[in-house]
């Protein structure tokens, strides 16, 4: 088992190295650079830049170096924790993304927990009560969850929260706590704002996850070993949860591995709608503006999350299914 984990971590590092090269190339790929973008902006505002100023800027950002030198400068800084400076914000990337990344990760993890907490029991229930009225009702809800776009759910919930619950919606904090230091009241205020995005993200993924759970459990329930478990005289609960559900979890765990990056990019639209300071919107504009270091750092962090998610899923899968431990 330990051997297996070490090998997986090795693969993970190789994957990340490849991603850093390819990712950096792609971010650099569009013609022009941030300097040209900046010059254009200044000219539009009526200012004019002398050739000297342009050369100074180009020199400052090392734009005349060959690409592998620039890549090396960036990546060697990145592993030491120096992510460079954002052109657009004139701030250290580190300071810009730290809190956003934290919000993104916590929203993702909470919505994943919520989605799993609902999806697994729901899927098990509808599989064990197949073709009964509750199963049909669950199925209808699942299709609703799959087909309604998340921003719409967000808008509906926002209206509901404001009109009915009288909550201030949008953003993460109410005005009075925006700049206040952390306190219990501020934390409660954060939770009051956080529940809408968490519920919205969970809503969509619960539907998909519970469909998968239902389909897989139905397959497993037809397996001979489920009958074997019954023939021992175990209670139906033990038969279902210990013997059937465990063997129906594989696809769900594999989805979990890939779902972290998915949730982060999926949440972009939602974050724009709700004005939540998460990673998505900033990553989006950084790429539009060719804000090289900001975009590349975001890309690396999201990749690290994705690869890490897959590693955790692989370990969980090996724990659930002994056949995977000995490939």
């Amino acid at each position: 088992m330990l051997n297996y984990i070490f090998r997986r971590i090795g693969y993970m590092l190789v994957t990340l190295a490849i991603i850093s090269v390819v990712g950096y190339l792609i971010v650099e790929l569009p013609p022009g650079s941030y300097v040209e973008f900046e010059i254009q902006r200044l000219r539009q505002q009526g200012g004019n830049l002398s050739q000297d100023q342009i050369t100074a800027l180009e020199l400052r950002y090392g734009l005349n170096d060959p690409i592998y030198v620039r890549f090396w400068k960036w990546i060697s800084g990145f592993v030491r924790g120096d992510f460079g400076e954002s052109f657009q914000y004139r701030q250290e990337v580190k300071d810009l993304i730290g809190q956003r990344l934290m919000f993104t990760i916590s929203i993702s993890i909470f919505s994943l927990l919520l989605a799993w907490g609902i999806a697994v029991p729901l899927g098990v229930y509808s599989a064990t009560h197949r073709y009964t009225l509750p199963d049909y009702i669950i199925t209808v809800l699942q299709f609703l969850g799959l087909s309604i776009p998340s921003f719409l759910v967000a808008l509906v919930l926002m209206v509901f929260a404001q009109r009915t619950l009288g909550q201030q919606v949008g953003g993460l904090f109410s005005d009075q706590y925006q700049t206040a230091p952390w306190s219990v009241a501020k934390f409660i205020d954060l939770l009051a704002h956080l529940w809408i995005p968490i519920v919205v993200i969970a809503f969509g993924s619960t539907a998909g996850l519970s469909r998968i759970m239902r389909a897989n459990l139905l397959d497993v329930l037809g397996m001979q070993y489920v009958q074997t478990a019954r023939s021992k005289g175990l209670t139906e609960n033990v038969v279902i949860w210990k013997h059937a559900v465990r063997n129906a979890m594989h696809p769900l765990i594999m989805i979990l591995g890939g779902s972290l990056p998915g949730i982060i990019s999926g949440e972009t639209v939602l974050a724009i709608v709700m004005n939540i300071p998460t990673v998505g919107p900033m990553y989006f504009t950084a790429q539009l503006n060719q804000d090289l270091y900001l975009a590349a750092s975001f890309l690396m962090f999201l990749s690290i999350l994705g690869v890490l998610g897959n590693l955790l899923a692989d370990i969980a899968l090996a724990w659930v299914d002994p056949r995977i431990r000995y490939e």
């Binding site: 001979q224 070993y225 009958q227 074997t228 023939s231 005289g233 209670t235 465990r246 659930v320």
Partner: peptide, 25 residues
């Protein structure tokens, strides 16, 4: 019935390949 099943009477199935749960020893 559960106290009878497994203790008083039990069953061997046709397919030894699939009648044991792959996840437990």
């Amino acid at each position: 019935m559960r106290s009878i099943r497994g203790a008083e009477m039990s069953m061997i199935f046709q397919e030894p390949m699939t009648s044991l749960n792959p996840s437990y020893t």
